[in-house]
């Protein structure tokens, strides 16, 4: 289990992190969401030991995280980096070895991974000859090759086509199913909704909301959506706060059974249900507060 505790970091006058805490349990996929400049990259860099925090600590399985444990993590930095003139397969295997695998082990893991990421026939090509999306798959392979205990990925999905997104999503889900905590940042909120068990929302260096997807959705104020065929305007008669969304009525806080009775009296009801808030709505709301 990884625990990030009260991280603080300033760059000159800019406060990048203002007390960020976050924890990841085995097998948990955590989406790290926040506006540009909110502090996601800074927090992930500190967790990976690439940047030093001004205050706060990162604890792994109960003790402060050190270099030897970080070597067993997988990391995909925001700014991608590969040796442009090294062959894809060699490069992935090299990183496997750097993370402590034997040469043979690294080769075997590389072959498996390249097959999973549809890169087998590019293994002999120089990285610079690959398309950007394929380079990104290689980058993922580099972070996965040593069978990491934990994954920290900074915007792994940016720049990928839908098929590549699926391939990468599957690869991550598979690792998580094997007990690996996965923390990744993204601006694609539908993706977060689809892949993540939990979400952490960061704004201006602070975590403003965190929890499982269900918890966050449940925490939202529930909104009843009503569609009824009638010429009459029911706004005044319905209980609670009523707003219009096109033809629909949105009701907050009123007794739902009363709403249904009034609507049924007025005309045929074609839609009567609570809206499911999306992560996008939760995010907008949280940031707006």
């Amino acid at each position: 289990m990884l625990e990030i505790k009260d991280l603080r970091k300033r760059f000159g006058e800019t406060v990048a992190l203002d007390g960020v805490s976050l924890s990841a349990r085995p097998g948990e996929v955590i989406g790290f969401v926040g506006a540009n400049g909110a502090g996601k990259t800074t927090a992930m860099r500190i967790a990976m030991g690439v940047l030093a925090a001004d205050a706060g600590e990162v604890v792994y399985n109960g003790s402060p995280l050190g270099a030897s444990q970080r070597r067993r993590f997988g990391y995909m930095p925001e700014e991608r980096g590969l040796y442009p003139k090294m062959k894809t397969g060699e490069q992935v295997a090299y990183f496997g070895e750097l993370h402590g695998m034997s040469r043979a082990e690294a080769k075997r893991a590389t072959a498996e991974l390249l097959a999973q990421l549809d890169l087998t026939d590019r293994a002999g090509d120089h990285v610079q000859e690959l398309s950007l999306g394929n380079q990104q798959r290689v980058q993922l392979a580099v972070s996965l090759v040593h069978r990491p205990e934990l994954l920290i990925l900074d915007e792994p999905f940016s720049g990928l086509d839908p098929i590549a997104v699926d391939v990468m999503g599957t690869a991550l889900k598979e690792r998580a199913a094997g007990g690996v905590p996965v923390i990744f940042s993204s601006h694609q909120l539908e993706l977060i909704e689809r892949l993540c068990d939990s979400v952490a929302i960061i704004s201006a260096g602070r975590i403003i909301a965190a929890g499982s997807v269900e918890e966050l959705k449940a925490r939202e104020t529930r909104r009843l959506r009503l569609r009824v065929a009638t010429a009459e305007d029911l706004s005044g008669r319905l209980p609670g706060t009523v707003t219009r969304d096109g033809e629909d009525y949105l009701v907050e806080g009123g007794d739902d059974q009363e709403v249904l009775r009034i609507a049924a009296d007025a005309g045929p009801v074609s839609h009567f249900a609570y809206d499911q808030p999306t992560i996008a709505e939760i995010f907008r709301e949280a940031v707006a507060q």
Partner: peptide, 17 residues
């Protein structure tokens, strides 16, 4: 400079000193 400009140091330094 190559390792620095290609940003590969950032991953290298997670497994090397």
């Amino acid at each position: 400079v190559e390792e620095k400009s290609s940003r590969i140091v950032e991953i290298l330094l997670t497994s090397l000193k």
